[in-house]
């Protein structure tokens, strides 16, 4: 060979580039560029299908935070998350402990509770609508029969969000339950034996000495996933309430959808998306950082 070989460093860089290139391109095309596009659109006044756009700076964001509907949307979303996450995690854990301790019919209970998670929520929403119908719904009929007060669950500003939260809990419970059951299976039996010899053989002691600490990593995962899913609540709102009445069930993704695809204010919708992305990202980082230190023991 008479051609001088390129220096070693350059060659390595070249082969590294060739090897990583395809993956990098895919990553750019499917992940990074769309996100970048959202950021670009958010600072324009582009409307979907329009042939022109102009740079408006942070106007979209200023308008956003001045918008009462958007503020209601954020408040509702946070409230919804605060209702759904603790209830889903708490009930999921309690159910998992009960099922684990009962021995028989374990698979049956697991399947039954997991069904709502597998079912299409759009279809299930119709069932919920029928159940919650103010005059002919089973819920109000039952309450009436018991002589208890009834409500127009999905049409009343004060009940609509909690009602949606109940549906959200109903749907996410199976997921939390199955994860907790798997977590319980992974707890070493030896630890329970050691706890028993050490004197921690009561239900409460077993729970605090062994079960709950050992479920730490699973709990962290369940909390994060449940919270993210709660932030993304959309289909029940869209099908059952369309954000009403009077924006009492307006949530972030619904606002985003309406602004982008009904009013076709794509620039404005992109700004909502960015706020949504930020919230989700901050939440994830915060949870991971705070909880990671407390649940992994090595």
């Amino acid at each position: 060979m008479t051609v001088p070989r390129p220096p070693r460093g350059t060659r390595e860089l070249l082969s590294a580039g060739i090897l990583a290139g395809p993956a990098l391109l895919l990553l750019l095309a499917t992940m990074l560029l769309p996100v970048l596009a959202v950021f670009v659109i958010a600072v324009t006044d582009w409307q979907f299908g329009a042939g022109h756009l102009s740079f408006v700076g942070l106007d979209n964001f200023v308008a956003l935070f001045g918008d009462a509907v958007f503020r209601a949307s954020i408040t509702n979303t946070v409230l919804y998350v605060c209702l759904v996450v603790p209830a889903t995690v708490g009930l999921g854990l309690a159910l998992a402990l009960l099922i684990e301790s009962c021995g028989r019919l374990r698979a049956f209970y697991r399947a039954v509770h997991f069904l709502p998670y597998m079912a299409t929520l759009a279809a299930m929403a119709v069932v919920w609508e029928a159940l919650l119908h103010p005059t002919i719904g089973v819920v109000n009929r039952t309450l009436q029969g018991l002589g208890w007060p009834v409500a127009n669950w999905l049409r009343d500003e004060s009940t609509v969000l909690p009602t949606l939260a109940v549906i959200g809990i109903w749907q996410g419970l199976g997921f939390a339950l199955v994860l907790f059951l798997a977590g319980l299976k992974a707890v070493p039996r030896d630890l329970y034996d050691a706890a028993e010899v050490d004197g921690a053989d009561g239900t409460l002691d077993r729970l605090t000495v062994v079960t709950l600490p050992m479920l730490g990593p699973v709990t962290m995962f369940v909390v994060i996933v449940t919270a993210l899913r709660a932030f993304e609540v959309f289909d029940t709102v869209r099908i059952l309430t369309e954000g009403g009445p009077a924006h009492a069930s307006e949530v972030l993704l619904h606002t985003l959808y309406v602004e982008s695809f009904e009013y076709l204010r794509t620039g404005y919708g992109a700004a909502v998306t960015i706020v949504f992305l930020l919230i989700v990202m901050v939440l994830t980082l915060l949870q991971a950082k705070v909880m990671d230190r407390r649940v992994h023991y090595s």
Binding site: D190, D193, E196, V197, G199, A200, P213
Partner: peptide, 28 residues
């Protein structure tokens, strides 16, 4: 087990992973 006045050392040691050494020893 706790009333038998016995202590046990397990093959896997069965130490509580979330507790420090001092807390592990203090638990019984």
């Amino acid at each position: 087990a706790k009333e038998r006045d016995i202590a046990m050392v397990f093959q896997t040691y069965a130490l509580y992973p979330h507790l420090t050494v001092a807390e592990n020893m203090a638990l019984p």
